[in-house]
Design a protein around this nucleic acid. Structure first.
Length: 482
RNA sequence: CGCGGGGUAGAGCAACGGUAGCUCGUCAGGCUCAUAACCUGAAGAUUGUCGGUUCGAUUCCGGCCCCCGCAACCA
């Protein structure tokens, strides 16, 4: 029996509507989860929403609504998006405002504190609301945050709790060395190693509740709430039922050797260094792998922004082209780890070339011959499986889904070429028996393509499999040309 | 010297010490089973720039130039 497998996305922060980047991240994680599942692994797949912190608190105030009501609304939006993206229905959805999460965050804090890694310190520091980060003098230009020059810095003078991150520099470096594929891709791993090697500073992990009450209360000190990062990262274990459900935690976190975490490149430090140090401080095992995605950009590699008008709404794409078309694009056409552009023109080109003219047309031409000539698959041929533990391991070795999807389309191209070369549609007139044998062999290949396609385009894969089993032509093209 | 990514055919990407492949697009031909689809062929790149190492560099090293992200919707 294959080992259980645990994979999670980062929790999107609910200060805006879901965007294409989150769609990409969760579709990729979903594909890995599906591959593992098809190979026979038991899979725990997690996502959810990160709902605390100053930005959310302010946004709700701005709109003059209750903070809880505000996050309820946005969290629901994210949850409703999942089926539209073709995400496995059994996915776990943890909210950082869930009581069980807050309980876990509290317990986590207690453990880290008991081990002596939390201390209280008075400090006065410039804080940039835009970054949600403290700024040191060296980071400022003319006394302003260079990233948010229009925004006044806030001076925070208060007693906060700090996490002794500085104590984990050596441990982290050792851990990285012992786990040479901990962060994927390698250039991101180098980046975080260099960052940690430069030295770590303790970071503040609480806020004064009188200023910013929207957070998990610090245990034993009702004047403070936890800093949003400290509480949010705990979601990867709170979703498993930690600390109450020991069996679940052992199964999914300990026996699997840790979680596979998908995240964007802006999350490198938090996931690969802060969170790992926090786990060490709580005396819990580390994550297994951190996979860092690039960003989706607009045309020419420019950042997507509303002011440039080059944003892409995932729901709009789905409405026009369908779920699997969006999945295809973020899995195959966008580069695996670098930034890559998403424009509707590029999308349409890829859609026509590889979905309409590719798998869609191939299915039609084969099934036309199959139904006309009366070709069927045997029970044995219909019961084959494609995904094995070995193949699934290839996926989690490289996490290069674009390459893996490419293998499917290579097979599609080969089949198109094969049909052209052997011309069974001609041969049927001269040597029908032989032609039927050819078409049968072709059908077996199409069936295998449908199996390979399952984690990538789950709906399309099932449609093709059913058409073959029911011996039918598609009533309308699988992917209409646009 | 803040950190990081990148500059390869019209576009998006590969490759990697032995003068460059893929996909899309373009052009020509073929086929008719198919969604005006599919197949074949062609055109199209002095691999940002200067210098070094080398028998030989796009690939290694150094300098320079340019673009982009690290803000605003942050994964």
């Amino acid at each position: 029996m294959p080992q259980p497998f645990y994979i999670t996305t980062t929790l999107p922060y609910v200060n805006a509507d879901p965007h294409i980047g989150f769609a990409m991240e969760i579709i990729r994680a979903d594909t890995i989860a599906r591959v593992k599942k098809l190979a026979g692994h038991e899979v725990f797949f997690n996502t959810g929403t990160d709902e605390h912190g100053l930005k959310v608190y302010r946004k709700a105030k701005e709109q003059n609504i209750d903070t809880q009501a505000y996050v309820d609304g946005l969290s629901a939006k994210y949850k409703e998006l999942l089926p539209q993206l073709g995400i496995l229905p059994e996915i776990a959805f943890i909210r950082t405002t869930d009581p069980r999460h807050k309980k876990a965050a509290t317990e986590f804090w207690n453990k880290v504190n008991a081990h002596g890694f939390i201390y209280k310190k008075a400090y006065s520091i410039k804080y940039c609301v835009g970054c949600e980060l403290e700024k040191t003098e060296s980071e400022l230009i003319d006394g302003r945050c260079p990233l948010h020059p229009a925004q006044d810095l806030e001076t925070i003078e208060e007693e906060n709790y700090f996490f002794k991150w500085s104590q984990f520099q050596e441990k982290l470096l050792k851990f990285y060395e012992a786990n040479p594929t901990f962060v994927i891709p390698e250039f991101r791993f180098n980046e975080i190693k260099a960052f940690v090697a430069r030295g770590l500073e303790d970071f503040s992990i609480s806020r004064l509740a009188s200023k910013m009450p929207w957070g998990v209360p610090v245990p034993g000190d009702e004047t403070q709430v936890m800093y949003v990062w400290f509480d949010a990262l705990v979601d990867y274990i709170s979703t498993l039922g930690w600390p109450d459900d020991e069996a679940s935690f052992t199964k999914w976190w300990v026996k699997t050797g840790g979680v596979v975490q998908y995240c964007g490149k802006d999350n490198l430090r938090q996931q690969a260094a802060m969170w790992q140090a926090m786990l060490m401080a709580a005396d819990l095992p580390p994550s297994k792998t951190i996979v860092i995605n690039g960003f989706i950009t607009g045309d020419g590699g420019l950042k997507m922004s509303k002011s440039l008008g080059n944003t892409v709404d995932p729901l709009e794409v789905i409405r026009e082209y369908g779920t699997d078309a969006l999945r295809y694009y973020v899995l195959r056409e966008l580069t695996a780890f670098e930034d890559s552009p998403f424009t509707l023109e590029k999308f349409k080109d890829a859609y026509n070339a590889h979905l309409a003219n590719g798998i869609g047309n191939l299915t039609s031409r084969i099934l036309k011959m199959v139904t006309t000539y009366g070709i069927t698959l045997s029970e044995e041929e219909k019961s084959i499986r494609y995904y094995t533990v070995e193949i699934a391991d290839q996926f989690t070795d490289s996490f290069d889904l674009s390459k893996k999807a490419g293998e499917v389309w290579q097979k599609i191209a080969m089949l198109d070429e094969h049909i052209q070369r052997t011309e069974p549609f001609k041969k049927i007139k001269t040597d029908p028996e032989d032609a039927k044998k050819d078409v049968h062999a072709i059908l077996v290949h199409l069936y295998e393509i449908a199996l390979m396609l399952e984690p990538f385009l789950p709906a399309t894969a099932v449609t093709i499999q059913n058409l073959i089993k029911e011996h039918k032509m598609p009533e309308q093209p699988l992917f209409m040309r646009k």
